[in-house]
Design a protein around this nucleic acid. Structure first.
Length: 104
DNA sequence: CAAGGGGCTGTCA
DNA sequence: TTGACAGCCCCTT
C-alpha cells in the first residue's frame, strides 16, 4: 500500500466530519477538504476506500441528490440502506438536498 | 513520460 | 425535467 497523499488525507478528514443524517455532494466535500473543484478526485478516493472503512462514504452523493453508482448494484443498495437507516428519505431514487444537505 | 478515465458539475437547449 | 457538452484535475496504467 502506498503512503496516502495529503489530498487523500484531507478528503478522509472532511468525510469523517460529516454528521450522521446529513449528506454532502462530491463538490462540497472537495471544498470542505480545501480542494475546490476536485469533485472527481473525491470520487476516486471514495472508490478506493476499503469495504470495512469506518468512514461515512455513503453520505456523499452527486449534486442532483442522487447516488452516483449504478442503480441496482450492490454498492448502490448498501449506500441507500445506510442513508435510510440514518433517517434520510428517498423519493424516486433521489433525496431532497434542501432537507438533508449538511451546512457546516 | 503519455494516455486514459473516473461514484462530478454548471450551463444551456 | 432531462440530456448533451464542455470544463475540470489528478491518480493509475
Amino acid at each position: 500500500m502506498q503512503s496516502p497523499s495529503d489530498r487523500q488525507q484531507a478528503i478522509w478528514l472532511a468525510l469523517a466530519s460529516i454528521p450522521r443524517g446529513r449528506v454532502v455532494s462530491y463538490g462540497q466535500l472537495a471544498q470542505l477538504a480545501g480542494l475546490p473543484g476536485r469533485a472527481r478526485l473525491v470520487g476516486q478516493v471514495l472508490s478506493k476506500l476499503p469495504r470495512d472503512s469506518k468512514l461515512p462514504w455513503h453520505r456523499v452523493l452527486n449534486a442532483q441528490g442522487r447516488l452516483s453508482l449504478p442503480t441496482g448494484s450492490v454498492r448502490y443498495a448498501e449506500q441507500r440502506r445506510r442513508l435510510e437507516d440514518e433517517g434520510i428519505i428517498f423519493i424516486d431514487d433521489r433525496i431532497n438536498l434542501k432537507s438533508f444537505a449538511w451546512q457546516p
